[in-house]
Amino acid sequence: MALKSLGALAAPLLICCALLTARLHGVDVYDALLCGARRGLKTALEILPALLVLFPAIYLLRASGLPELLGQVLGPLLRTLGVPEETGLLMLLRPLSGSAALSAATEIIGRCGPDSLPGRTAAVMLGSSETTFYVVAVYFSAAGVKRSRWAIPAALCADLACFLSSAWVCRLLWG
């Protein structure tokens, strides 16, 4: 499929495009890359404390047998919807905490393999959604508005649509 080979070459293609665009605009290419690398290191350092707190919790969650119990309850529903069972936990954590969702997705990708269907679905789910409750809290508290009215239900609808479409698109491309 054309989409597939485009995806496979995406990384070098993107870098080529970015380099050419920057060149055309007279940007100091090397300095920009260095600056970005510095920012990447900063991001990695910034997420480390949260991951150190949440990784043990996610590993414990994984080992406790709770996902299997959840799977027995939610499994039939997820299977009917065409969503990999392994991603059930990720979908529950995603709107609550970005780091917990990253930990859960990393666990799925490590256990099932990055190129497996559950691994890819977890990656797409994580890449195409946001930490809903965090965003709602930041914006409404910054604006000094107490009632968030219909923002949360509408945002959760978008999240649900994101999870379902992630599962379906992955199944279509790699299932």
């Binding site: 990384a11 978008a158 479409s165």
Partner: peptide, 20 residues
């Protein structure tokens, strides 16, 4: 190919924005 999920991420994001 770490980025081969890119088209899927775009499609799914677009779907989520439309539903939102």
């Amino acid at each position: 190919a770490p980025f081969d999920i890119l088209p899927a991420v775009w499609l799914s994001s677009a779907c989520s924005v439309c539903c939102g």
